[in-house]
């Protein structure tokens, strides 16, 4: 009887080893490529979000435009136009005032992280603000401030805007009367509302005659004047 040769496990050949290493390498490449692809998609989403937020920060509204018609050392005249939220012209007027620097005053109301701007009066360097021309009547439509009007505005928002506008009008009447000595309920309702009267400055820069200027409202409550 022939003796049975004990079988010895053969050492893996070099070729097999190389194939195994190659398979692991290719698997690693495929997995890391897949992971990187997924990570890249997330990064692109972050980039899109950041770009959108930057656009929101720079987004502005223009409730009013004006143009100086004539100017002398003692008198200045201008035309004003008001616009709704979707850019439609809703009112206009022309007037002359004593003075040489024109100021457009706006009330800014912070609400839930946003800022609503209500142009409130026009005055000059020679006219005290409480003697200036009140602007509310030009865009008051049955208690609704028409500068915020748009077809997409729902009933709840309209009602809220009406209430807010009403409170601002009462505040203006209250503070517009120097006989009222004590702060009243209007201020406590409106809390952090503030005003910003933007104007030209004779010494440095004046509104040019015949140029249309935009009253620009920034999302963070800043008011700016820019030529159209």
């Amino acid at each position: 009887m022939r003796a049975t040769k004990k079988s010895v496990p053969a050492k893996p050949r070099l070729g097999t080893l190389i194939r195994r290493i190659w398979l692991v390498f290719i698997l690693f490449l495929l997995v890391s490529g897949g992971f990187l692809g997924f990570y890249l998609v997330q990064q692109k989403r972050i980039i899109q979000d950041l770009e959108s937020r930057i656009e929101q920060v720079k987004a502005t509204t223009i409730p009013l435009r004006f143009m100086v018609l004539s100017r002398s050392d003692e008198e200045i005249s201008a035309r004003f136009k008001f616009y709704s939220a979707d850019g439609k012209e809703i009112a206009s007027f022309e007037r002359a005032w004593k003075g040489s620097e024109l100021a457009i005053d706006t009330l800014v109301v912070p609400i839930k992280g946003k800022f609503l701007a209500f142009p409130v009066r026009v005055f000059t360097d020679a006219i005290a603000p409480n003697k200036g021309t009140l602007l509310f009547p030009y865009y008051d439509r049955d208690g609704m401030p028409a500068i915020f009007d748009s077809p997409t505005l729902d009933g709840e928002l309209r009602s809220g805007l009406r209430d807010l506008f009403g409170a601002l009008k009462r505040m203006e009447q209250f503070y517009g009367n120097p006989e009222n000595k004590n702060p009243g309920p209007a201020l406590s309702v409106l809390g952090t509302v503030f005003g910003n009267a933007v104007h030209d400055i004779n010494r440095f820069w004046r509104f040019e005659i015949g140029i249309v200027y935009d009253l620009v409202v920034h999302p963070d409550g800043g008011i700016e004047i820019l030529p159209e």
Binding site: F194, N196, V198, W205, L226
Partner: peptide, 11 residues
């Protein structure tokens, strides 16, 4: 971008 006077105010 812009240069102007700005009188911020509050009661």
């Amino acid at each position: 971008r812009s240069l102007y006077g700005s009188a911020i105010h509050r009661p």
